[in-house]
């Protein structure tokens, strides 16, 4: 099962080359520039919510309008931000990443075709 450690197959060089290419660096940085801040954002917002709900129930119980209090708004806010971020992520991926990634995919597969260890 294990891949022998002997002479590295040529396909490995292709992947290293693609990884260093400007086109790939651009796709990667677009992906990370969106995903990392957004993930940090929603995780902090979620943990702030959980910690506040468990440690400061008085704040959460403050009424806003009718039966609706801060806790209800915060909980529904979590649902809302989840839907919004889902929409923003797919939009970003579709407009800023998909086309470039697809081109890289064909180019890479073209380069690995026929090389040792490459995917046909």
């Amino acid at each position: 099962m294990e891949v022998p450690d002997a002479a590295p197959p040529a396909a490995a060089d292709v992947y290293l080359e693609v990884q260093r290419s400007a086109a790939f660096q651009e796709v990667r940085s677009r992906y990370r520039r969106f995903v990392l801040p957004a993930a940090a954002g929603f995780l902090s917002w979620y943990f702030a919510y959980v910690v506040t709900a468990t440690t400061a129930p008085d704040l959460m119980a403050r009424p806003v309008a009718g039966a609706v209090n801060v806790a209800m708004l915060a909980g529904l806010g979590q649902f809302l931000t989840t839907f919004l971020l889902t929409w923003a992520y797919t939009r970003h991926a579709r407009l800023r990443r998909d086309r470039a990634a697809l081109e890289l995919r064909w180019d890479t597969q073209e380069l690995t075709r026929g090389t040792k260890g490459g995917v046909a």
Binding site: P8, A11, A12, D13, Y15, L16, V18, Q19, F24, V27, R28, Y31, A101, L102, L104, R105, T108, Q109, T112, G118, V119
Partner: peptide, 17 residues
């Protein structure tokens, strides 16, 4: 293993292979 990492990164973001 740098080459394997390159392969994982390129494949994961582009879908090559």
């Amino acid at each position: 293993d740098e080459a394997k990492h390159a392969e994982t990164e390129v494949r994961s973001l582009t879908g090559a292979g």
